[in-house]
Design a protein around this nucleic acid. Structure first.
Lengths: 217, 217
DNA sequence: CCCTTATGTAATCATTGATTACATTTCGAT
DNA sequence: ATCGAAATGTAATCAATGATTACATAAGGG
Protein backbone atom coordinates (compact mmCIF):
# COMPACT_ATOMS: atom_id res chain seq x y z
CA UNK A 1 0.00 0.00 0.00
CA UNK A 2 1.65 3.21 -1.14
CA UNK A 3 1.19 5.56 1.77
CA UNK A 4 3.76 8.18 1.10
CA UNK A 5 2.68 11.20 -0.88
CA UNK A 6 5.36 11.54 -3.52
CA UNK A 7 6.24 15.08 -4.49
CA UNK A 8 5.75 16.00 -8.11
CA UNK A 9 8.03 13.77 -10.18
CA UNK A 10 11.42 15.27 -9.84
CA UNK A 11 12.71 16.88 -13.04
CA UNK A 12 15.79 14.73 -13.22
CA UNK A 13 17.83 13.35 -16.08
CA UNK A 14 15.36 11.60 -18.40
CA UNK A 15 13.81 14.74 -19.86
CA UNK A 16 13.23 13.03 -23.20
CA UNK A 17 9.93 11.31 -22.30
CA UNK A 18 6.89 13.57 -21.95
CA UNK A 19 5.40 11.53 -19.10
CA UNK A 20 7.71 10.36 -16.37
CA UNK A 21 7.84 6.66 -15.83
CA UNK A 22 6.28 6.99 -12.42
CA UNK A 23 2.93 8.54 -12.29
CA UNK A 24 2.92 10.54 -9.11
CA UNK A 25 -0.30 9.56 -7.41
CA UNK A 26 -1.80 6.85 -9.51
CA UNK A 27 -3.88 5.43 -6.71
CA UNK A 28 -5.82 8.65 -6.18
CA UNK A 29 -6.21 9.20 -9.92
CA UNK A 30 -7.59 5.69 -10.41
CA UNK A 31 -10.16 6.19 -7.68
CA UNK A 32 -11.18 9.48 -9.24
CA UNK A 33 -11.45 7.86 -12.66
CA UNK A 34 -13.61 5.10 -11.23
CA UNK A 35 -15.96 7.62 -9.63
CA UNK A 36 -16.10 9.63 -12.82
CA UNK A 37 -16.88 6.57 -14.92
CA UNK A 38 -19.65 5.60 -12.56
CA UNK A 39 -21.07 9.11 -12.61
CA UNK A 40 -21.13 9.01 -16.40
CA UNK A 41 -23.21 5.86 -16.29
CA UNK A 42 -20.51 3.75 -17.90
CA UNK A 43 -19.61 0.56 -16.17
CA UNK A 44 -16.36 0.81 -14.34
CA UNK A 45 -13.59 -1.37 -15.69
CA UNK A 46 -10.05 -1.44 -14.44
CA UNK A 47 -8.76 -1.04 -17.96
CA UNK A 48 -10.83 2.04 -18.65
CA UNK A 49 -9.65 3.62 -15.40
CA UNK A 50 -6.09 2.84 -16.45
CA UNK A 51 -6.79 4.33 -19.86
CA UNK A 52 -7.99 7.56 -18.27
CA UNK A 53 -4.87 7.68 -16.16
CA UNK A 54 -2.81 7.13 -19.32
CA UNK A 55 -1.21 4.07 -17.86
CA UNK A 56 -0.81 0.44 -18.86
CA UNK A 57 -3.63 -2.02 -18.19
CA UNK A 58 -1.63 -3.84 -15.54
CA UNK A 59 -0.54 -0.78 -13.58
CA UNK A 60 -3.67 -0.49 -11.40
CA UNK A 61 -2.95 -3.91 -9.95
CA UNK A 62 0.11 -2.46 -8.23
CA UNK A 63 -2.25 -0.39 -6.11
CA UNK A 64 -5.28 -2.65 -5.85
CA UNK A 65 -5.12 -6.43 -5.66
CA UNK A 66 -8.22 -6.69 -7.82
CA UNK A 67 -11.12 -4.79 -9.26
CA UNK A 68 -13.17 -5.09 -6.08
CA UNK A 69 -10.48 -3.35 -4.07
CA UNK A 70 -10.55 -0.42 -6.48
CA UNK A 71 -14.32 -0.21 -6.17
CA UNK A 72 -14.06 -0.41 -2.39
CA UNK A 73 -11.63 2.48 -2.37
CA UNK A 74 -13.94 4.46 -4.63
CA UNK A 75 -16.82 3.65 -2.29
CA UNK A 76 -14.85 4.92 0.69
CA UNK A 77 -14.19 8.20 -1.08
CA UNK A 78 -17.86 8.55 -2.04
CA UNK A 79 -18.93 7.74 1.50
CA UNK A 80 -16.67 10.48 2.84
CA UNK A 81 -18.42 13.02 0.64
CA UNK A 82 -21.84 11.67 1.54
CA UNK A 83 -21.15 11.89 5.22
CA UNK A 84 -19.58 15.34 4.95
CA UNK A 85 -22.72 16.66 3.30
CA UNK A 86 -25.00 15.20 5.96
CA UNK A 87 -22.89 16.56 8.80
CA UNK A 88 -22.79 19.95 7.14
CA UNK A 89 -26.56 19.99 6.90
CA UNK A 90 -26.89 19.02 10.55
CA UNK A 91 -24.42 21.65 11.69
CA UNK A 92 -26.59 24.30 10.05
CA UNK A 93 -29.55 23.33 12.23
CA UNK A 94 -27.89 22.66 15.57
CA UNK A 95 -30.39 24.11 17.98
CA UNK A 96 -33.63 23.09 16.34
CA UNK A 97 -35.80 20.39 17.86
CA UNK A 98 -34.99 16.71 17.45
CA UNK A 99 -37.67 16.17 14.85
CA UNK A 100 -36.40 19.08 12.80
CA UNK A 101 -32.92 17.62 13.03
CA UNK A 102 -34.28 14.22 12.04
CA UNK A 103 -35.88 15.86 9.04
CA UNK A 104 -32.70 17.72 8.13
CA UNK A 105 -30.78 14.46 8.25
CA UNK A 106 -33.25 12.67 6.04
CA UNK A 107 -33.40 15.52 3.58
CA UNK A 108 -29.63 15.74 3.27
CA UNK A 109 -29.49 11.96 2.78
CA UNK A 110 -32.11 12.09 0.06
CA UNK A 111 -30.66 15.09 -1.71
CA UNK A 112 -27.18 13.63 -1.91
CA UNK A 113 -28.46 10.24 -3.03
CA UNK A 114 -30.69 11.78 -5.69
CA UNK A 115 -27.96 14.02 -7.03
CA UNK A 116 -25.17 11.43 -6.95
CA UNK A 117 -27.03 8.26 -7.84
CA UNK A 118 -24.10 6.31 -9.20
CA UNK A 119 -21.95 7.07 -6.19
CA UNK A 120 -24.77 6.18 -3.86
CA UNK A 121 -25.05 2.87 -5.64
CA UNK A 122 -21.37 2.10 -5.22
CA UNK A 123 -21.63 2.85 -1.53
CA UNK A 124 -24.78 0.94 -0.82
CA UNK A 125 -25.10 -2.00 -3.07
CA UNK A 126 -22.39 -4.39 -2.03
CA UNK A 127 -22.25 -5.71 -5.58
CA UNK A 128 -19.02 -4.09 -6.61
CA UNK A 129 -17.04 -5.41 -3.68
CA UNK A 130 -17.65 -7.69 -0.74
CA UNK A 131 -19.87 -5.77 1.60
CA UNK A 132 -18.11 -5.39 4.92
CA UNK A 133 -14.64 -5.80 3.47
CA UNK A 134 -13.98 -2.13 4.12
CA UNK A 135 -13.73 -1.36 7.81
CA UNK A 136 -13.84 2.36 7.09
CA UNK A 137 -17.09 2.06 5.20
CA UNK A 138 -18.65 -0.08 7.89
CA UNK A 139 -17.58 2.30 10.64
CA UNK A 140 -18.76 5.41 8.80
CA UNK A 141 -22.12 3.83 8.18
CA UNK A 142 -22.47 2.72 11.77
CA UNK A 143 -21.74 6.24 12.94
CA UNK A 144 -24.44 7.68 10.72
CA UNK A 145 -26.91 5.19 12.13
CA UNK A 146 -25.84 6.04 15.67
CA UNK A 147 -26.39 9.69 14.84
CA UNK A 148 -30.04 9.11 13.94
CA UNK A 149 -30.52 6.94 16.98
CA UNK A 150 -29.27 9.75 19.16
CA UNK A 151 -31.66 12.21 17.55
CA UNK A 152 -34.57 9.84 18.01
CA UNK A 153 -33.61 9.26 21.65
CA UNK A 154 -33.74 13.00 22.24
CA UNK A 155 -37.15 13.15 20.61
CA UNK A 156 -38.38 10.36 22.84
CA UNK A 157 -37.02 12.09 25.95
CA UNK A 158 -38.92 15.21 25.09
CA UNK A 159 -42.09 13.20 24.58
CA UNK A 160 -42.38 14.02 20.91
CA UNK A 161 -42.99 10.47 19.65
CA UNK A 162 -46.13 8.35 19.61
CA UNK A 163 -44.15 5.17 20.01
CA UNK A 164 -41.00 4.59 21.99
CA UNK A 165 -39.89 1.65 19.89
CA UNK A 166 -36.93 3.62 18.60
CA UNK A 167 -35.34 0.67 16.83
CA UNK A 168 -38.45 0.17 14.78
CA UNK A 169 -38.71 3.84 13.89
CA UNK A 170 -35.06 3.90 12.95
CA UNK A 171 -35.32 0.92 10.65
CA UNK A 172 -38.52 2.11 9.01
CA UNK A 173 -37.11 5.57 8.45
CA UNK A 174 -33.94 4.14 7.00
CA UNK A 175 -35.89 1.88 4.70
CA UNK A 176 -37.93 4.86 3.54
CA UNK A 177 -35.03 7.07 2.49
CA UNK A 178 -33.01 4.12 1.20
CA UNK A 179 -35.96 2.94 -0.80
CA UNK A 180 -36.58 6.33 -2.27
CA UNK A 181 -32.95 6.73 -3.23
CA UNK A 182 -32.86 3.31 -4.84
CA UNK A 183 -36.16 3.72 -6.65
CA UNK A 184 -34.65 6.75 -8.28
CA UNK A 185 -31.47 4.86 -9.02
CA UNK A 186 -33.30 1.88 -10.44
CA UNK A 187 -35.38 3.95 -12.81
CA UNK A 188 -38.73 3.86 -11.05
CA UNK A 189 -39.42 7.55 -11.60
CA UNK A 190 -39.47 7.69 -15.38
CA UNK A 191 -41.71 10.60 -16.32
CA UNK A 192 -41.03 12.67 -13.21
CA UNK A 193 -37.45 13.11 -14.17
CA UNK A 194 -38.32 15.60 -16.87
CA UNK A 195 -38.54 18.40 -14.40
CA UNK A 196 -35.54 18.48 -12.11
CA UNK A 197 -36.47 18.96 -8.50
CA UNK A 198 -39.78 17.16 -8.88
CA UNK A 199 -38.35 13.98 -7.43
CA UNK A 200 -36.74 15.86 -4.57
CA UNK A 201 -40.08 17.42 -3.73
CA UNK A 202 -41.71 13.99 -3.72
CA UNK A 203 -38.97 12.72 -1.46
CA UNK A 204 -39.52 15.63 0.90
CA UNK A 205 -43.23 14.90 0.94
CA UNK A 206 -42.69 11.24 1.77
CA UNK A 207 -40.27 12.15 4.54
CA UNK A 208 -42.72 14.64 6.04
CA UNK A 209 -45.50 12.08 5.89
CA UNK A 210 -43.34 9.65 7.79
CA UNK A 211 -42.37 12.18 10.42
CA UNK A 212 -45.97 13.24 10.88
CA UNK A 213 -46.79 9.57 11.40
CA UNK A 214 -44.29 9.03 14.18
CA UNK A 215 -44.82 12.38 15.91
CA UNK A 216 -47.24 12.66 18.81
CA UNK A 217 -50.34 14.45 17.49
CA UNK B 1 -39.60 -15.84 -31.81
CA UNK B 2 -40.38 -19.54 -31.42
CA UNK B 3 -44.03 -19.62 -30.43
CA UNK B 4 -45.00 -23.15 -31.22
CA UNK B 5 -44.62 -25.70 -28.48
CA UNK B 6 -42.82 -28.56 -30.15
CA UNK B 7 -43.86 -31.99 -29.03
CA UNK B 8 -41.17 -34.21 -27.56
CA UNK B 9 -38.51 -34.70 -30.23
CA UNK B 10 -39.83 -37.41 -32.48
CA UNK B 11 -37.89 -40.65 -32.19
CA UNK B 12 -36.96 -40.80 -35.83
CA UNK B 13 -34.02 -42.24 -37.70
CA UNK B 14 -30.86 -40.83 -36.03
CA UNK B 15 -31.05 -42.89 -32.90
CA UNK B 16 -27.27 -42.88 -32.53
CA UNK B 17 -26.92 -39.55 -30.68
CA UNK B 18 -28.05 -39.47 -27.07
CA UNK B 19 -29.43 -35.94 -27.29
CA UNK B 20 -31.49 -35.01 -30.29
CA UNK B 21 -30.11 -32.18 -32.36
CA UNK B 22 -33.03 -29.99 -31.48
CA UNK B 23 -33.55 -29.27 -27.87
CA UNK B 24 -37.29 -29.15 -27.45
CA UNK B 25 -37.92 -25.97 -25.51
CA UNK B 26 -34.58 -24.28 -25.19
CA UNK B 27 -36.06 -20.85 -24.59
CA UNK B 28 -37.89 -21.91 -21.47
CA UNK B 29 -34.92 -23.89 -20.20
CA UNK B 30 -32.59 -20.92 -20.66
CA UNK B 31 -34.90 -18.66 -18.71
CA UNK B 32 -35.09 -21.24 -15.95
CA UNK B 33 -31.32 -21.59 -15.91
CA UNK B 34 -30.92 -17.83 -15.69
CA UNK B 35 -33.29 -17.66 -12.72
CA UNK B 36 -31.54 -20.57 -11.06
CA UNK B 37 -28.12 -19.00 -11.52
CA UNK B 38 -29.36 -15.76 -10.04
CA UNK B 39 -30.91 -17.56 -7.11
CA UNK B 40 -27.59 -19.27 -6.45
CA UNK B 41 -25.88 -15.92 -6.25
CA UNK B 42 -23.76 -16.57 -9.30
CA UNK B 43 -23.71 -13.91 -11.94
CA UNK B 44 -25.79 -14.89 -14.91
CA UNK B 45 -23.85 -15.39 -18.11
CA UNK B 46 -25.29 -16.53 -21.39
CA UNK B 47 -22.63 -19.20 -21.67
CA UNK B 48 -23.34 -20.65 -18.26
CA UNK B 49 -27.04 -20.81 -19.06
CA UNK B 50 -26.15 -22.58 -22.29
CA UNK B 51 -23.90 -24.94 -20.36
CA UNK B 52 -26.75 -25.85 -18.03
CA UNK B 53 -28.96 -26.50 -20.98
CA UNK B 54 -26.21 -28.69 -22.46
CA UNK B 55 -26.11 -26.64 -25.60
CA UNK B 56 -23.48 -24.73 -27.55
CA UNK B 57 -22.51 -21.20 -26.46
CA UNK B 58 -24.09 -19.67 -29.53
CA UNK B 59 -27.43 -21.44 -29.31
CA UNK B 60 -29.11 -19.00 -26.88
CA UNK B 61 -28.72 -16.25 -29.42
CA UNK B 62 -31.27 -18.02 -31.62
CA UNK B 63 -33.85 -17.26 -28.95
CA UNK B 64 -32.60 -13.97 -27.54
CA UNK B 65 -30.88 -11.25 -29.54
CA UNK B 66 -28.56 -10.54 -26.66
CA UNK B 67 -27.95 -11.08 -23.00
CA UNK B 68 -30.28 -8.31 -21.97
CA UNK B 69 -33.18 -9.95 -23.76
CA UNK B 70 -32.58 -13.16 -21.82
CA UNK B 71 -32.51 -11.23 -18.58
CA UNK B 72 -35.68 -9.40 -19.54
CA UNK B 73 -37.44 -12.69 -20.21
CA UNK B 74 -36.23 -14.02 -16.86
CA UNK B 75 -37.49 -10.85 -15.21
CA UNK B 76 -40.92 -11.32 -16.80
CA UNK B 77 -41.11 -14.84 -15.44
CA UNK B 78 -40.06 -13.71 -11.97
CA UNK B 79 -42.56 -10.87 -12.05
CA UNK B 80 -45.33 -13.32 -12.90
CA UNK B 81 -44.51 -15.33 -9.78
CA UNK B 82 -44.22 -12.19 -7.66
CA UNK B 83 -47.57 -10.91 -8.79
CA UNK B 84 -49.24 -14.30 -8.39
CA UNK B 85 -48.15 -14.47 -4.77
CA UNK B 86 -49.44 -10.99 -4.00
CA UNK B 87 -52.78 -11.64 -5.63
CA UNK B 88 -53.08 -14.94 -3.79
CA UNK B 89 -52.46 -13.18 -0.50
CA UNK B 90 -55.08 -10.56 -1.31
CA UNK B 91 -57.64 -13.13 -2.33
CA UNK B 92 -57.30 -14.71 1.09
CA UNK B 93 -58.34 -11.44 2.76
CA UNK B 94 -61.09 -10.23 0.46
CA UNK B 95 -63.63 -8.85 2.87
CA UNK B 96 -61.34 -7.28 5.43
CA UNK B 97 -61.06 -3.52 5.70
CA UNK B 98 -58.94 -1.50 3.30
CA UNK B 99 -56.13 -1.01 5.80
CA UNK B 100 -55.98 -4.73 6.47
CA UNK B 101 -55.83 -5.31 2.75
CA UNK B 102 -53.12 -2.69 2.43
CA UNK B 103 -51.20 -4.50 5.12
CA UNK B 104 -51.70 -7.87 3.44
CA UNK B 105 -50.39 -6.44 0.20
CA UNK B 106 -47.31 -4.98 1.81
CA UNK B 107 -46.62 -8.14 3.75
CA UNK B 108 -46.88 -10.35 0.67
CA UNK B 109 -44.59 -7.95 -1.20
CA UNK B 110 -42.02 -8.03 1.57
CA UNK B 111 -42.17 -11.77 2.10
CA UNK B 112 -41.64 -12.58 -1.55
CA UNK B 113 -38.86 -10.04 -1.91
CA UNK B 114 -37.09 -11.29 1.20
CA UNK B 115 -37.38 -14.92 0.19
CA UNK B 116 -36.46 -14.44 -3.46
CA UNK B 117 -33.89 -11.69 -3.25
CA UNK B 118 -32.07 -12.41 -6.50
CA UNK B 119 -35.29 -12.59 -8.47
CA UNK B 120 -36.51 -9.40 -6.89
CA UNK B 121 -33.32 -7.75 -7.96
CA UNK B 122 -33.69 -8.86 -11.56
CA UNK B 123 -37.21 -7.47 -11.61
CA UNK B 124 -36.50 -4.18 -9.97
CA UNK B 125 -33.05 -3.02 -10.73
CA UNK B 126 -33.04 -2.18 -14.40
CA UNK B 127 -29.35 -3.00 -14.55
CA UNK B 128 -29.67 -6.31 -16.35
CA UNK B 129 -31.72 -4.93 -19.20
CA UNK B 130 -33.02 -1.58 -20.30
CA UNK B 131 -35.74 -0.70 -17.88
CA UNK B 132 -38.99 -0.24 -19.76
CA UNK B 133 -37.95 -2.42 -22.68
CA UNK B 134 -40.42 -5.07 -21.55
CA UNK B 135 -44.00 -3.93 -22.02
CA UNK B 136 -45.24 -6.89 -19.98
CA UNK B 137 -43.09 -5.94 -17.04
CA UNK B 138 -44.15 -2.32 -17.21
CA UNK B 139 -47.82 -3.24 -17.43
CA UNK B 140 -47.66 -5.76 -14.59
CA UNK B 141 -45.97 -3.24 -12.38
CA UNK B 142 -48.45 -0.52 -13.22
CA UNK B 143 -51.30 -2.83 -12.34
CA UNK B 144 -49.80 -3.59 -8.95
CA UNK B 145 -49.49 0.12 -8.29
CA UNK B 146 -53.08 0.69 -9.39
CA UNK B 147 -54.13 -2.04 -7.00
CA UNK B 148 -52.66 -0.24 -4.01
CA UNK B 149 -54.12 3.04 -5.18
CA UNK B 150 -57.56 1.45 -5.26
CA UNK B 151 -57.14 0.11 -1.74
CA UNK B 152 -56.01 3.51 -0.48
CA UNK B 153 -58.95 5.19 -2.21
CA UNK B 154 -61.31 2.84 -0.37
CA UNK B 155 -59.60 3.66 2.90
CA UNK B 156 -59.98 7.37 2.21
CA UNK B 157 -63.68 6.96 1.37
CA UNK B 158 -64.27 5.26 4.68
CA UNK B 159 -62.47 8.06 6.48
CA UNK B 160 -59.71 5.83 7.76
CA UNK B 161 -56.78 8.08 6.78
CA UNK B 162 -55.34 11.14 8.44
CA UNK B 163 -54.30 12.62 5.12
CA UNK B 164 -56.08 12.44 1.79
CA UNK B 165 -52.90 12.95 -0.22
CA UNK B 166 -53.13 9.43 -1.57
CA UNK B 167 -50.32 9.89 -4.06
CA UNK B 168 -47.94 10.80 -1.30
CA UNK B 169 -49.00 7.89 0.87
CA UNK B 170 -48.63 5.56 -2.07
CA UNK B 171 -45.13 6.70 -2.88
CA UNK B 172 -43.97 6.66 0.70
CA UNK B 173 -45.38 3.18 1.26
CA UNK B 174 -43.78 1.92 -1.91
CA UNK B 175 -40.44 3.41 -0.92
CA UNK B 176 -40.71 1.74 2.47
CA UNK B 177 -41.26 -1.80 1.23
CA UNK B 178 -38.90 -1.33 -1.70
CA UNK B 179 -36.25 0.04 0.60
CA UNK B 180 -36.63 -2.79 3.03
CA UNK B 181 -36.42 -5.37 0.27
CA UNK B 182 -33.32 -3.76 -1.18
CA UNK B 183 -31.61 -3.27 2.14
CA UNK B 184 -31.90 -6.99 2.61
CA UNK B 185 -30.68 -7.60 -0.91
CA UNK B 186 -27.75 -5.22 -0.55
CA UNK B 187 -26.53 -6.82 2.65
CA UNK B 188 -27.62 -4.21 5.17
CA UNK B 189 -28.93 -6.78 7.63
CA UNK B 190 -25.76 -8.67 8.42
CA UNK B 191 -26.16 -10.07 11.89
CA UNK B 192 -29.92 -10.37 11.82
CA UNK B 193 -29.76 -12.98 9.14
CA UNK B 194 -28.56 -15.61 11.57
CA UNK B 195 -32.06 -16.32 12.69
CA UNK B 196 -34.37 -16.80 9.76
CA UNK B 197 -37.62 -14.93 10.14
CA UNK B 198 -36.01 -12.16 12.16
CA UNK B 199 -35.83 -9.91 9.14
CA UNK B 200 -39.40 -10.68 8.17
CA UNK B 201 -40.54 -9.69 11.64
CA UNK B 202 -38.64 -6.42 11.38
CA UNK B 203 -40.26 -5.80 8.03
CA UNK B 204 -43.67 -6.47 9.50
CA UNK B 205 -42.93 -4.04 12.32
CA UNK B 206 -41.87 -1.31 9.93
CA UNK B 207 -44.98 -1.82 7.85
CA UNK B 208 -47.23 -1.65 10.91
CA UNK B 209 -45.50 1.50 12.08
CA UNK B 210 -46.15 3.09 8.71
CA UNK B 211 -49.80 2.06 8.66
CA UNK B 212 -50.32 3.32 12.19
CA UNK B 213 -48.82 6.61 11.01
CA UNK B 214 -51.23 7.10 8.12
CA UNK B 215 -54.34 5.80 9.90
CA UNK B 216 -56.66 8.23 11.59
CA UNK B 217 -56.10 7.88 15.38
C1' DC C 1 -41.08 -35.61 -51.59
C1' DC C 2 -38.68 -31.45 -51.58
C1' DC C 3 -37.87 -26.78 -50.01
C1' DT C 4 -38.20 -23.07 -46.80
C1' DT C 5 -37.62 -21.90 -42.16
C1' DA C 6 -36.24 -22.71 -37.50
C1' DT C 7 -32.78 -24.16 -34.69
C1' DG C 8 -28.30 -25.89 -33.24
C1' DT C 9 -22.90 -26.23 -33.89
C1' DA C 10 -18.18 -24.64 -34.72
C1' DA C 11 -15.06 -21.15 -35.34
C1' DT C 12 -13.81 -16.72 -34.50
C1' DC C 13 -13.29 -11.78 -32.51
C1' DA C 14 -12.97 -7.88 -29.09
C1' DT C 15 -13.13 -6.76 -24.31
C1' DT C 16 -12.02 -7.56 -19.69
C1' DG C 17 -9.89 -9.21 -15.15
C1' DA C 18 -5.82 -11.16 -13.86
C1' DT C 19 -0.89 -12.97 -13.77
C1' DT C 20 3.99 -13.06 -14.92
C1' DA C 21 8.51 -11.53 -16.43
C1' DC C 22 10.99 -7.62 -16.94
C1' DA C 23 12.30 -2.47 -16.76
C1' DT C 24 12.83 1.78 -14.27
C1' DT C 25 12.61 4.75 -10.42
C1' DT C 26 12.92 5.90 -5.50
C1' DC C 27 14.82 5.75 -1.05
C1' DG C 28 17.31 4.42 2.87
C1' DA C 29 21.48 2.17 4.89
C1' DT C 30 26.05 2.35 4.66
C1' DA D 1 27.61 9.66 -2.91
C1' DT D 2 26.43 4.91 -3.90
C1' DC D 3 24.50 0.56 -3.92
C1' DG D 4 20.86 -2.59 -3.32
C1' DA D 5 16.16 -3.48 -2.09
C1' DA D 6 11.54 -2.09 -2.56
C1' DA D 7 8.09 0.26 -5.17
C1' DT D 8 5.99 1.04 -9.37
C1' DG D 9 5.22 0.85 -14.24
C1' DT D 10 5.26 -1.92 -19.00
C1' DA D 11 4.62 -5.78 -22.19
C1' DA D 12 3.00 -10.14 -23.06
C1' DT D 13 -0.11 -13.45 -22.12
C1' DC D 14 -4.30 -16.32 -20.45
C1' DA D 15 -9.15 -17.62 -19.58
C1' DA D 16 -13.94 -16.18 -19.65
C1' DT D 17 -17.56 -13.77 -21.82
C1' DG D 18 -20.82 -11.43 -25.28
C1' DA D 19 -21.39 -11.49 -29.87
C1' DT D 20 -21.19 -12.66 -34.98
C1' DT D 21 -20.74 -15.64 -38.98
C1' DA D 22 -20.73 -19.73 -41.85
C1' DC D 23 -22.43 -24.07 -41.92
C1' DA D 24 -25.29 -28.36 -40.52
C1' DT D 25 -29.55 -30.54 -39.36
C1' DA D 26 -34.31 -30.98 -38.21
C1' DA D 27 -39.48 -29.93 -38.93
C1' DG D 28 -43.37 -29.20 -41.41
C1' DG D 29 -46.21 -27.42 -45.30
C1' DG D 30 -46.88 -27.09 -50.34
Amino acid sequence: MPIRQPSKPRASRPRAQARPYHHGDLRRVLIEAALQLAAEGADVSVREAARRAAVSPGAPFRHFPNRDALMAAAAEEAQRRFRAEIEAALSKAPASGPLARFRAFGLAYLRWALRNPAHFEIISTGRYFVHGSSAELTRDNAELIALTEGILAQAAEQGLLRSVDLKRIQIAGRALVYGFARMNLDGHFPRWGVEAGEIERMAEGALDLFIAGIAKP
